[in-house]
Simulated assay, not measured.
Amino acid sequence: MTPLAGIPLGDWRAQGRGMDFQGRRIRYWTAGEGEPLLLIHGFPTASWDWHYLWEPLSRRYRVIACDMLGFGYSDKPRGHDYRLLEQADLQQALLATLGVEGPVHVLAHDYGDSVAQELLARHHEGRFKLASCVFLNGGLFPETHRPVLVQKLLLSPVGGLVGRLFSRRKLAASFAQVFGPDTQPGDLELDDFWRLIAEQNGPAVMHRLIHYIPERRQQRDRWVAAMQKGGVPLGVIDGAVDPISGAHMVERYRELVPDADTVLLEGIGHYPQTEAPEQVLEHYLAFRGRQK
């Protein structure tokens, strides 16, 4: 399998564009032609997470991604009440800005899985047109989500202090726990992940962003019902050894979702799109092929 080259962070940043969302500045990217494919990133990183897959996917689809509010190169307002539902509004606003009106395919990861679940629920409510959705590692079910220590601390009464003290060293320690044993990020990759988080003093809002965890519990029944309803092709491509949302999450998915289309990547952790991008691409294209 030929390794994918990826895009250096500086080049990625230069390719971005800006849009306004409720008075906030949002950075977004788009490339390619054809059916629209919306890529939705996770916590605490940004849409650069997709950089290995960006060019190969753009040869087949019109790929679209943004750094959500509070992430990456987008605005990170202090004191803001960050909500997954608002991030779904942002995705719809981005598509409207780009003139995308027809059904949209979605590939999501982690926090982005929850945003995608909301879009799926809106599809069934007649408020969005979703063509298909594939989830990478994420907390699709609160009962299987196993947060790491820093997430628990961010949710605690001292969360604001924990966020302000978050550092590259602590990021490296957290990632070491959730990446696969043989696919750990290198120092340069960690530097880039940290730059995205540190942009505009991002650690100062991490304790506010983390409220997606209780919000998932609030929306759980609505979102699971949307996944069970059918009518939209769904798939899961999951790093099996991820302690947060690995094989145990996929087991629950198979219990709850009819005709579950799932792939487990052995030895891969929480970030399959950077740990094993070639495998993710292969399985994603196979998923799309099965829909024809």
Rank of each mutant, 00 (worst) to 15 (best):
E118W: 06
E118C: 09
L120I: 07
L120N: 09
R122K: 03
H124R: 08
H124I: 03
E125V: 01
G126A: 06
G126Y: 11
G126W: 14
K129N: 11
S132R: 08
S132I: 00
S132E: 10
S132H: 08
C133W: 01
F135E: 04
N137D: 15
N137T: 08
G138I: 14
G138L: 15
G138R: 12
G139A: 14
L140V: 15
F141R: 12
P142I: 13
P142R: 03
E143L: 11
T144A: 04
T144G: 03
R146V: 12
V148T: 12
V148F: 12
V150G: 00
Q151D: 11
Q151P: 04
Q151V: 13
L153H: 06
L153M: 09
L154R: 01
L155G: 06
L155Y: 09
P157K: 00
V158E: 02
V158F: 04
G159I: 05
G160A: 12
G160T: 02
L161E: 10
V162Q: 01
V162K: 00
G163K: 03
G163H: 00
R164S: 05
L165D: 10
L165F: 07
F166A: 09
F166V: 13
F166T: 13
S167R: 02
S167M: 02
S167C: 05
K170T: 13
A172D: 01
A172M: 01
A173L: 03
A173E: 15
A173G: 07
S174T: 15
F175T: 00
F175K: 04
A176Q: 15
A176C: 02
A176G: 06
Q177T: 06
V178D: 00
F179G: 01
G180N: 03
G180P: 06
G180H: 03
G180W: 02
P181Y: 00
P181M: 04
D182M: 11
P185K: 13
L188T: 14
L188N: 07
E189A: 10
D191R: 12
F193A: 12
F193V: 12
F193G: 02
F193K: 07
W194Q: 05
W194Y: 08
R195Y: 02
L196D: 04
L196I: 02
E199V: 03
Q200F: 13
Q200V: 08
N201I: 06
P203V: 01
P203Y: 05
P203K: 08
P203S: 07
A204Y: 09
A204L: 11
A204S: 15
M206D: 06
I210W: 00
